[in-house]
Design a protein around this nucleic acid. Structure first.
Lengths: 353, 353
DNA sequence: TCCGTGCATGATTGCGCTAACATCATGCCG
DNA sequence: CGGCATGATGTTAGCGCAATCATGCACGGA
């Protein structure tokens, strides 16, 4: 690895040396009109004659002027940012939610800004504080569980707040998501109906993944309806989810060889489990059934389709963004509650009921 | 301690009725000191007596005051944001780079802000313009290829710029990455040395994925050294990468059944190809060798380890962030060029040389 | 001819905060 | 006991822009 140095940071390909960054004044002097007119041209607001407009645009372009949104935002009391606070980017799920948000926001003039909490409530609080200090037009935040301080900040912010992913709980303002409790219960019923009886759960250990927790609770409740109790469980944290899925599956099957179904808290470890079972020649879904959660695209490429439930990730993003966009234009207030319905996709790893 | 009440616009400071958002003045009135002192306390700057500090903090907390960074940034001409511009979030690679950046920035007071271009140069230009208008302390941007306007903006911005991922080309300022050309060539040499001769390439169609393009160019150059020409190629775009890997592998093997090696432009499609080959009972690596690129964690869970090259993703993020952090504190200027060296991991899908 | 009308542009003010300097006690030294 | 660091606070002046209102000017109908 080599390191070389250049002499100057700015060798201008454009016009002059921008020692101090350019302001409206520079453009106004270059084009011979007032700052106000330049401002109007650059924002396409108010009446400006075509000739003036052209002259100003030419000058701005020639100088390489980039507006200062900080000053603009302060003066206009308007910021076109939407804070999006999510636990992780490596989860596949959240980039998809983000995709939905971006798409929906694309032609509203609003722009998402992402903050990541790593599933830590304290970090969430910090990130929220940081983002609110930029006075965004709205907040989209994953989950309904927040520290008291975070909750207070959300309530006091005076902007639209949309909590996403999860509807099982008390929302600050609007909420868009699915019921993870119900999702777990539905899967449990399906499994019970298919005749499986010795059922194991494999999932994340993280105490702050409330949605996984709720799925498990719903799952156990669903099993209970059929008089079934969870036979065994196995938890993990960190590492490659696919590999963990393999290892955990091996571990739980070694410990409880009589299990006839494994419910995974997400598709990634479920996929690992599926690969493990195929490796070992285990009869799936005859001898052993499998199911995950999320409906990730990755599953399409596996040798067999893992049973799962679509978490409506993209749509959640879109709906949440639409709420922010709608409210920030209409100025209307009031928290919608949108519960989406995930669909169980039985795939090839649950035997027919 | 007694609480003195004074005539204040905010009679009920609790988490209710945030009519007009709070300012330093509100805190200053509530705590009986000047705005300046409040500002000092909240920024931990300058000398403030312990008692005053406590009083101010109490007042700020009680009111639920959140500083306005817009005003602060305008006044101080300092913004603690670092713009990070990447092509995609669904690629796995970039979240990892982001992880490296966040980690490195974590205790510098700087904060990354992410913009996504979807591999579109025009979108990159737009995103860059938007981000620069917030006057960040630095820019980390993927790739060396930009529109002329984007390049000009970067050069004129007067802040540290770090181009990442790729070092094959002309940098604006600093650059941290690997040589994809070299990476492709190295893999080609290894494949040739192992005795493979009928070699196919499978990759993305996107014309703006310059790094994939450079890997292919390097790969062909490496093969040429051994007198080998690429026997066939197959391109894709969109969809589930794992599934695409399967489909493409089937397609290319149907068309050119005599191929004895497949080089994939990324691990995801490579993994799909591997699964396909295992399904079909193809002898890997005897009859057919396989290799991908990136060294993604996912590979650890596959039935067999795909040959790949680690792209140093996390380290790239860290080094880039360190450059920004270092320069923004020291004020030093000058573009470093850091070339990392990816390591070929032969896994189980190339036969020994 | 006049004044109104509408368009194009300019002047003023302040958004909320911080840099820089000013002020005013203390206390401690010789 | 004088003088001057030193600490603790307050005062002033913008940062770059946009809201708002003021101004100038051409045109057209009465």
């Amino acid at each position: 690895m080599e390191v070389t140095r250049r002499k100057s940071p700015v060798s201008t390909p454009g016009p002059q040396e921008p020692r101090r960054s350019l302001t409206l004044r520079d453009v106004s002097e270059a084009s011979g009109v007032s700052e106000m007119t330049v401002s109007r041209v650059l924002r396409n607001r108010g009446d400006v004659s075509a000739s003036t407009r052209a002259r100003v645009l030419e000058a701005a372009k020639h100088l390489g002027y980039v507006p200062n949104k900080i000053a603009g935002a302060l003066a206009s009391q308007r910021v076109n940012l939407v804070a999006v606070i999510i636990p992780s980017l490596s989860n596949l799920v959240f980039p998809e939610v983000l995709g939905g948000i971006s798409e929906e926001l694309d032609d509203t003039g609003l722009q998402p800004v992402v903050g990541v909490t790593n599933y830590s409530p304290e970090r969430e609080e910090t990130v929220l504080y940081e983002m609110l200090s930029w006075r965004p037009s709205g907040v989209i935040i994953a989950g309904l569980e927040h520290t008291p301080a975070a909750r207070a900040m959300l309530q006091n912010a005076g902007i639209p707040i949309v909590e996403i992913m999860d509807v099982d709980g008390e929302a600050v303002d609007a909420v868009v998501g699915i019921s993870h409790h119900r999702a777990g219960a539905e899967m449990a019923r399906r499994i019970a109906a298919a005749g499986y009886r010795r059922i194991g759960f494999l999932g994340t250990k993280m105490p702050d993944d409330h949605r996984a927790r709720k799925r498990l609770e719903g799952f156990e409740a669903g099993l209970a309806e059929a008089g079934i109790a969870l036979a065994d469980r196995e938890f993990y944290s960190g590492g490659s989810a696919l590999l963990k899925g393999r290892e955990m599956t091996q571990a739980i099957l070694t410990r409880s060889p009589d299990l006839d179904f494994l419910y995974y808290s997400n598709d990634m470890i479920g996929a690992g489990g599926l690969l493990y079972c195929l490796d070992k020649g285990i009869d799936v879904p005859g001898r052993l059934g499998l199911a995950g959660f999320n409906g990730v695209e990755l599953l399409d490429g596996l040798p067999r389709r893992l049973a799962t439930m679509d978490a409506c990730r993209r749509e959640i993003g879109q709906r949440a963004a639409a709420i922010i966009a709608g409210r920030s234009t209409t100025g209307l207030v009031g928290g919608a509650r949108i519960e989406l319905t995930p669909v169980l996709q039985p795939g090839d790893t649950i035997r027919p009921a």
